[in-house]
Design a protein around this nucleic acid. Structure first.
Lengths: 208, 208
DNA sequence: ACCTGAACACCGTTCAAGT
DNA sequence: ACCTGAACACCGTTCAAGT
């Protein structure tokens, strides 16, 4: 709260700015993120940040990277905590949605950059999160649980679903009747089940 | 290109600003959208816009609303053009992804507002797009094609999937191996099929 | 009712210095 | 190498006027 000066001269101004950025993001949202404000909070002049970031976009990319690291950690924790069966792990991927609801503005920054991947570290961090999905899908395939297809393509389907649900929830676009009495948590479970079984009408296969 | 003055004094400054905004968005992206620039382009003073919009956010909401109207029209066209069977219409919903790829920055604005629905018109326009999905799902259910569940909940699953794929493609987050040699178009078709049949391994049901 | 001009506080970014 | 101060062009927003 009131530790104005710290170790910024020791070479970690970069980390301090990222950290301050994450805090501002959580408290006030993306619109409140400015280089000058972060510099002020951290106690340096308004253009000291340029020593560590080419421009504002580079700082946003660093914050986004940090977000993917956090997401990867959350996924990792949930997947190792889940019982070992791939089906339970598939259900455990709902931490993705939980993470998004817990850090909506961070998610906004993480997926803000459109059609230019000028930040290899960001791309790499995102891929590390994706890798977790690929791993559990591949394991499930070996056990004959999932259909035969490129594991990354199959994992992509799961990611697409998780991200879509997270994005719509965050953007406040999920109407009452779509929830149909369910909580977002419950809806996530239902949808993950449908993702597994499909939405077509079948004779009846009802062991989860 | 060079028609500086027009009919803005006839009471359509509001529409002129929205129109200019859509154009700027398509050409330069969301970061380039400013009230002052639009006012300049349209030939009025920099605070004339405040006569029609409470603030910049209100303009963004209006532009987002316009986006949902466009999306609804695209969905409507594709769904009526598709053969009449619900399954073909389900496949036709891939215009959602096509729309997103054609108007990435507009999509960004449409889903930019987090956790506050202070714009009823925007909400309504978004719901009109969603209604189209609910309709085709409900029809499919009547024909015994889809599983039994609240239609809006089932349609939500489709929306979640379409939006997730669109968002990841737009954000340049879909890696090569996720595509697995497929084009985004092909991937959309494959995923829509999986959405229908599920990703679990089954004895074999292979009529599309 | 609708628009304008001046003004304020805030940005991102650059440049010439400082140590 | 790392930081500062002055400067520039741009914002969103408000207020007092103008017609």
């Amino acid at each position: 709260m009131s530790k104005p000066k710290a170790t910024y001269h020791h070479g970690d101004l970069r980390q301090a700015l990222i950290h301050a950025g994450v805090a501002v993001l959580a408290e006030e949202g993306m619109h409140a993120l400015s280089l000058r404000k972060l510099a002020r909070q951290v106690g340096v002049s308004h253009n000291a940040p340029y020593q560590h970031f080419a421009d504002k976009d580079a700082l946003l990319a660093a914050i986004a990277t940090e977000g993917f690291v956090m997401l990867t950690a959350a996924l990792d924790a949930a997947l190792t905590a889940a019982r070992a069966t791939p089906l339970e792990q598939l259900q455990a991927t709902r931490v993705y949605v939980q993470f998004a609801l817990a850090h909506p503005h961070h998610m906004q920054v993480m997926f803000h950059h459109l059609e230019h991947q000028a930040y290899p570290e960001l791309q790499a961090a995102a891929m590390q999160a994706f890798d977790q999905l690929v791993t559990i899908i591949a394991r499930g395939q070996h056990q004959g649980l999932f259909i035969s297809a490129p594991p990354a393509q199959l994992a992509g389907m799961v990611w697409v679903f998780l991200h879509g649900l997270a994005a719509l929830l965050i953007a406040d676009k999920v109407p009452e009747r779509m929830l149909s009495q369910a909580t977002p948590e419950e809806l996530t479970r239902i949808y993950l089940h449908w993702l597994f079984t499909g939405i077509q009408c079948m004779p009846n296969h009802d062991r989860s």
